[in-house]
Amino acid sequence: MRWQSMLAIYILFWAFSVFLVLPFGVRTAHEAGVELVPGQAESAPHAFNPKKIAIRTTAVATLLFVLFYLNYVNGWVTAETLDWVHR
């Protein structure tokens, strides 16, 4: 596999992982015990930390990419494995 393909696939895993990571560890102002800012939704997160989310996302994306690459090299799951119609 070319390095450009690997980079593109990793970026796709990273973008997908953002949506997996975002809901975890979110606390609302009510849960944090602070006052709401006027006009703030009650469900809005209390403190948004993009650095923490980026680190978590990178860890999840790297794990998923390593599993993908190991499957690519070793051929654990192939298209024939997933073809249940023509067995």
Rank of each mutant, 00 (worst) to 15 (best):
S17I: 07
R56L: 08
S17Q: 09
G33D: 01
N71S: 06
P38Y: 01
H86C: 01
G25M: 05
Q4C: 01
P38A: 00
F16M: 08
L7I: 08
S17V: 05
V85L: 09
A47R: 12
E35M: 10
K52R: 10
V21S: 01
T58N: 10
F48W: 08
D83I: 14
D83G: 10
A44Y: 09
R2E: 05
F48I: 13
P50L: 03
A41Q: 15
E80L: 15
V73T: 09
H30V: 13
A15D: 01
F16A: 13
K51I: 11
V73E: 02
Y69D: 03
V66H: 02
T58C: 10
G33S: 04
M6E: 01
A8W: 03
T62I: 12
V21Q: 08
T62C: 13
T81S: 14
T81D: 15
I55D: 09
F13Q: 02
L36W: 08
F13C: 02
P45Q: 03
A32K: 11
T78A: 03
E80I: 13
Q40W: 14
Y10V: 07
N71F: 01
P23L: 00
L63Q: 07
I53N: 06
S43V: 11
N74M: 03
A15G: 04
A8G: 00
N49R: 07
W84V: 10
E35A: 04
Y69G: 04
F19A: 12
A59F: 09
A54Q: 13
Y69Q: 06
L82V: 06
V21D: 07
H30Y: 10
N71W: 03
A79E: 15
Q4W: 05
R27Q: 10
R27I: 05
L63Y: 11
Y69E: 07
R87C: 02
A8Y: 06
V21L: 03
L70R: 04
V60L: 14
L12K: 05
H46D: 09
F48P: 06
L64R: 04
W14I: 00
A8K: 08
I9T: 08
V34T: 12
G25F: 11
Y10N: 02
V21R: 06
W76C: 01
P50H: 03
F19E: 05
F65I: 05
A44V: 12
M1W: 06
